[in-house]
């Protein structure tokens, strides 16, 4: 899963990178994208395109692997067989998504191990929302349904992008996300329509998660940096505001129909403009958390590092079996 708010390079370096591209090749490249055709790994591509795609796909992959932790918190406690099996499969899928996405990013020339190193050394970011804790079972249900719903809005948009390997990975991922979404909704429905205690548990989870959910799509496009060229190259397929609006439009009514309230009294659809209005999210808090000062940043990285350390002897041993074969990037 993944949110907006990708960290793109500031535009001065962008210009730097674009300056010495061959204009003829660049024109052909842009014409292919304009025709709606996909770029494949062996095609010529501008350095900036490569760089921003690596950054974006890598962050997406990190978000999947880190995203497996908040829901994984409840993996040993899921109530009943149906939930137990589903949550195991759901968390497994997120790990699988990371595997697929790392593979797509690798086709652009960065090895998976390099990316994982950048994650655990804090050099590279992941979706901010996973820096929040899952206090109860209901929190994990909120994520499965609504954080994944937000991710799907993003991923469906990106699946129409220009880079073949990323689109293929996203097609697979979106197919699995439909299970996550239905499973999550099913869980929330059961809590919201269940006993008073279950209902309260669910309402409290909505109260806790609403602000991070609004942050999930990233700052308003009005205040985020210009990404025109990335839009033209079909790297960035929808603006943060478009994704947020689409999410609200699809899911607020579904939350309300379960008799749950959303902790924002200004939230309503403006029937004239068709746009949702809401209290401006606290972007200072968003920045603080993304820069490391959230409730779980430390834990998430510590756990990822611990997993790496505990697995190191396994990888060392297996590597001894590879008989000098050299790593090459995946083909497609």
């Amino acid at each position: 899963m993944y949110g907006g708010g990708q960290v793109f390079e500031p535009s001065s370096t962008n210009n730097e990178l674009l300056k010495d591209e061959d204009p003829k090749k660049l024109a052909e490249f842009e014409a292919r994208i304009a025709r709606g055709e996909k770029i494949e790994p062996k095609d010529w591509m501008p350095k900036l395109y490569r760089k921003q795609l690596i950054r974006m796909i890598e962050q997406h992959a990190h978000s999947e692997i880190i995203g497996s932790l908040p829901e994984g918190t409840w993996i040993t406690r899921a109530p009943g067989f149906k939930r137990k099996l589903a949550l195991m499969a759901k968390v497994q899928d997120e790990v699988g998504h990371a595997q697929l996405l790392y593979g797509a990013a690798e086709t652009l020339g960065k090895s998976r191990e390099q990316m994982i190193e950048d994650l655990i050394t804090g050099k590279s970011k992941y979706s901010n929302i996973f820096n929040y804790p899952t206090f109860t079972w209901a929190d994990s249900c909120f994520i499965s349904w609504l954080v994944d719903a937000g991710a799907i809005v993003n991923q469906l948009a990106n699946a129409r992008g220009s880079y073949g390997p990323y689109c293929r990975a996203l097609d697979r991922i979106c197919a699995e996300e439909s299970f996550h979404l239905k499973y999550g909704h099913h869980c929330v429905i059961h809590l919201a329509t269940g006993t008073p205690k279950q209902r309260q548990m669910m309402q409290e989870a909505v109260n806790r998660w609403w602000a991070p959910m609004m942050h999930f799509f990233g700052p308003s496009d009005k205040i985020s940096t210009h990404t025109e060229i990335l839009t033209k190259w079909k790297v960035k397929m929808a603006t943060n505001d478009e994704c947020r609006q689409q999410f609200l439009d699809m899911y607020v009514p579904k939350i309300w129909e379960l008799g749950l309230t959303i902790p924002d009294e200004n939230l309503k659809k403006n029937e004239e403009t068709g746009e949702w209005e809401f209290t401006e999210p606290d972007w200072e808090e968003f920045k603080r958390v993304i820069n490391g000062d959230g409730p779980c940043n430390k834990e998430r990285l510590a756990v990822r590092r611990t997993a790496e350390e505990r697995g190191a002897w396994v990888r060392r041993a297996l590597a001894a079996k590879t008989k000098g074969d050299k790593y090459v990037a995946p083909m497609a």
Binding site: Y102, A307, V314
Partner: peptide, 17 residues
Amino acid sequence: SEWTGMGPLLEEDIAFS
């Protein structure tokens, strides 16, 4: 299932899960 998300390498994490 305790290993899901914490396996020694990604592919094995998936297989063991």
